[in-house]
Simulated scan of single mutants.
Amino acid sequence: MRALLVVNPTATTTRPRTREVLVSALSTELDLEVAETTHRGHAIELGTRAAREKFDVIVALGGDGTVNEVVNGLLVDGPSGDLPALGVVPGGSANVFIRALGGPRDPVDATGLLLEALRANRRRTIGLGRVNDRWFIFCAGYGLDAAVVGRVERARSNGKTATPGLYVRSAVAQYFRGPERTMSSIELKLDAPPSDGVDSETEPSGRFAAVIVQNCSPWTYLGPRPVNPCPEASFDAGLDFLAARALRLPSTLRTVQQILSSKPDPRGREIVRRHDLSGFVLRSDTPLAAQVDGDYLGELTELRFAGVPHALRVVV
């Protein structure tokens, strides 16, 4: 079986010696080619190469950002049944995707499970999200959460490690110092009625301060704790979102408590949630921060979302 292993050498939680052991283990059972990323976007190029050179499998060894780039490379020409299947060995700080699939966080355990799945020819086809020209696997955001991602990226570029503590400190700082708390500039338009039969008259009205989009549950993890704004989200359904009309301190604290609960069910006068959507559009006259899978996209005025079923084969 011909495989391309895409390695992010700066991955947060894997050491060079660990990566050598993992490469050796995979090489025993695969016709393996190893490629290390050298710059942002390199994994996209490698994913495209794997698709066009008809590899059987592409394995991403890194964090969720590496996985996202690989997927965007694989799907550069759109979903197809003859694309390489994706395998993941976690090497980041959160590793949301593999955990959402039920896989282990430990890279050695994940490699063993990946080899076992390859021997048994276990595959799963999942739906993905698309926003503008970018694919995403598990989440996207517009407003406050994306601004927090941008703040964390700046901290990492200054040598900080992406820990749960860094995200919490960045979220608190952005909430109190950023402009998002006092703005409600996002307009939301559904492309079609929700597929669960909800009438189109229930389309949200008014403007919103922040929107979180999920393609699976949970949205992310705070260390071991799942963070779950849209607990019904699934790889086997369309997209879900949670939109906040305002970010006043009392209601925001209540929503945070709800999404961190062991039985999350965020609700309230300021909250709108929708499940299993085929698509929707977010617009803001003022450019706002946007992110996909924890990767900061910059400040944008329009995001066009689509849920794409059966888009990717995954080795599980």
Score class of each variant (00 low, 15 high):
Ala51Asp: 01
Val59Ser: 02
Phe208Glu: 06
Cys139Ile: 05
Val7His: 04
Ile212Gln: 05
Ala171Phe: 10
Ala209Gln: 06
Val108Met: 13
Ile137Glu: 09
Met1Cys: 05
Leu247Asp: 03
Gly87Thr: 10
Phe280Cys: 04
Arg269Ile: 03
Ser261Ala: 15
Leu166Asn: 04
Ile98Phe: 03
Ala311Tyr: 03
Pro226Ala: 13
Arg105Gly: 08
Ser185His: 07
Thr37Ile: 02
Tyr175Asn: 09
Arg154Gly: 14
His39Leu: 00
Gly129Lys: 13
Val256Gln: 00
Ile44Lys: 01
Ala25Asp: 12
Gly102Thr: 07
Arg304Phe: 03
Gly112Glu: 10
Gly143Cys: 04
Ala140Ser: 14
Leu22His: 05
Ser170Phe: 08
Ala155Glu: 11
Pro224Arg: 14
Ser157Arg: 15
Leu61Pro: 01
His310Ser: 14
Val316Pro: 00
Glu270Asn: 13
Ala43Tyr: 00
Tyr296Gly: 02
Gly294Ala: 03
Gly65Pro: 07
Gly159Arg: 04
Glu201His: 14
Asp56Pro: 00
Pro107Ala: 01
Pro287Thr: 03
Tyr167Thr: 06
Asp199Ser: 15
Gly81Ser: 13
Ala173Pro: 02
Arg19Ile: 12
Arg207Ala: 09
Ser251Pro: 02
Asn228Glu: 15
Glu45Ser: 06
Asp106Lys: 01
Gly103Phe: 02
Arg169Pro: 00
Glu33Asp: 03
Ile186Gly: 02
Asp295Ile: 01
Pro193Asp: 06
Tyr142Asn: 09
Thr38Gly: 08
Thr48Ala: 12
Cys230Ser: 15
Asn132Gln: 12
Phe97Arg: 06
Arg119Val: 12
Pro164Ser: 07
Asp145Met: 09
Ala50Cys: 01
Val6Tyr: 05
Tyr221Trp: 12
Leu32Gly: 02
Gln214Met: 11
Arg124Tyr: 09
Glu69Arg: 06
Phe138Asn: 11
Gly102His: 07
Ala85Pro: 07
Arg52Glu: 10
Lys189Phe: 14
Ala60Ile: 10
Ala244Thr: 03
Glu180Phe: 11
Pro90Arg: 07
Arg52Tyr: 02
Val21Ile: 09
Asp285Lys: 09
Pro250Val: 08
Glu20Phe: 01
Ala155Asn: 05
Pro164Phe: 03
Ala85Gly: 05
Val213Leu: 00
Gly141Ala: 02
Ala35Asn: 00
Ser217Phe: 03
Asn8His: 03
Ala100Pro: 06
Arg248Phe: 04
His310Glu: 14
Leu4Val: 00
Thr18Ala: 13
Ala192Gly: 07
Asp265Gly: 10
Ser185Asn: 12
Gly63Gln: 07
Arg254Tyr: 01
Ala237Trp: 04
Gln214Ile: 00
Lys189Arg: 15
